[in-house]
Amino acid sequence: MITMENIIRDGHPTLREVAKEVTLPPSEEEIQTLKSMLEFLINSQNPEIAEKYGLRSGIGLAAPQINIAKRMIAIYLKDENEKIHSYALFNPKIISHSVEGAYLSAGEGCLSVDEAIPGFVPRHARITVKGIAIDGTEVKVRLKGLLAIVFQHEIDHLNGVMFYDHIDSKNPLKPIENALPLDR
């Protein structure tokens, strides 16, 4: 079981590495790691389990955040209609994106960053992602809104990029041109 102790913090060199592709088919160890990453997110959103194990609530996790420099991400979130979106992917890639931008009006957070960093993070409003699911099937998903932002945040981790790298350091709260502010 992954706990907060497994999550490396900002400043750790693995967070700045470009993660390596997972050789397919993935090993049993890689499959178990990806399942554990998804399980962590599910547990972190369950108030009783989160309190028992001291978990910070998360909606996305990339393997570099648990000090594994491989291209693996897990995402688990409920949308505004209470629909659950659950993904665990090997080698995810953004294959297309909108010209229109989006950003979270409250800014972004990260399980590897302990302090709040104010500022708007420019993202694409819509993206299409391809990857390989735990069962080995190819997945292609079109995403928008919060889900698109979470995928971009996690894929950035695979490329050694932190969310705050995108924030305008001179004017972090300046609204982003041609971008839609999202509440969640």
Rank of each mutant, 00 (worst) to 15 (best):
M1Q: 11
E82S: 11
R126Q: 15
S27I: 08
T23L: 14
P181H: 01
P64Y: 01
A133S: 15
L38F: 01
H157S: 07
I132T: 15
I75M: 14
L180P: 00
I95D: 04
S112R: 09
N6A: 12
I42L: 09
E29P: 10
K174F: 02
L146Q: 10
L24N: 01
I149K: 00
I155Y: 03
V121A: 00
L24I: 07
A74Y: 02
S169W: 11
I95A: 04
S44N: 06
C110Y: 08
G136N: 08
P25A: 06
M37Y: 01
M37L: 09
A179P: 05
I167K: 09
L89E: 13
S105I: 12
S112K: 11
R71S: 12
P47D: 13
H12V: 04
R56I: 08
Y53E: 15
P25F: 08
L111F: 03
S112T: 13
I8L: 06
N67H: 14
V161C: 02
L111C: 02
I2Q: 07
K83D: 15
L104D: 11
H166I: 00
E21W: 10
K52M: 15
L38E: 12
L147G: 04
S96V: 07
M72N: 10
L173K: 15
L61E: 06
A148E: 08
L111E: 03
F120W: 02
L41F: 00
I73D: 12
K170I: 11
K70D: 02
R123C: 14
Y53R: 13
S112D: 14
A19I: 05
I149A: 04
A19E: 13
S169D: 07
G136F: 00
L55Y: 08
I155D: 04
L41H: 02
L147D: 07
R123E: 05
N46L: 01
A63T: 12
V18I: 14
H85P: 06
I73Y: 10
L143S: 08
I42G: 03
K170V: 06
K170G: 11
H157A: 05
L24D: 05
H166T: 00
L182N: 06
S96H: 06
I117Y: 01
V161W: 04
K20Q: 15
F120E: 02
G109P: 12
